[in-house]
């Protein structure tokens, strides 16, 4: 019967990892540590593997297959699909950022050099969508 508990545990760990990841947008701790779900799937796979070692039941093999698929999918997503290639930025800590002028939605121009001597600036580049 121990195999059964381990199988259940394995599935709970996988389901919890998916549920937690779905909170990605709202919870910074999850969002900023995506490798967490990969680790969780790996743990679920190990637990399922133990269940197979103990019982060799069909449900243990199924749980192992499910967790390995999730692990492979999760790892591929996090380490391959979600990767952004290293940007060879010209910005350097300690050097001045090159000046620019761009317009906002109201048509007002914003010039970076205009802030010099007046205010520090937090400059954020984003894609336009999440």
């Amino acid at each position: 019967m121990r195999a059964g508990w381990l199988v259940a545990l394995s599935l709970v760990v996988s389901a919890a990892a998916i549920a937690v990841y779905s909170q990605l947008l709202r919870v910074p701790a999850v969002r900023n540590n995506p490798e967490g779900y990969v680790a969780a799937f790996a743990i679920a796979a190990v637990i399922a593997g133990l269940a197979v070692a103990l019982g060799r039941r069909w449900y243990a093999w199924t749980a192992l297959a499910v967790s390995l698929v999730l692990l492979l999918g999760g790892a591929t997503f996090n380490f391959v699909l979600a990767r952004i290639p290293a940007a060879h930025t010209t910005l350097r800590v300690g050097e001045r950022a090159p000046d620019f002028t761009l317009s906002d939605a109201a048509g007002r121009p914003v010039t970076l050099a205009g802030y010099r001597g007046r205010q520090p600036v937090v400059l954020v580049f984003y894609r336009g969508y999440w």
Binding site: A82, L91, V93, E95, R96, A97, L123, G128
Partner: peptide
Amino acid sequence: DVPTPTTVVLDRDGVVRWLWVSNNFQVR
């Protein structure tokens, strides 16, 4: 082509004092 998500902190002289360039679109 899109921008790489980036956050830069500039001081009053326009000098870069902190720089964060993303390498994973999940991470902020």
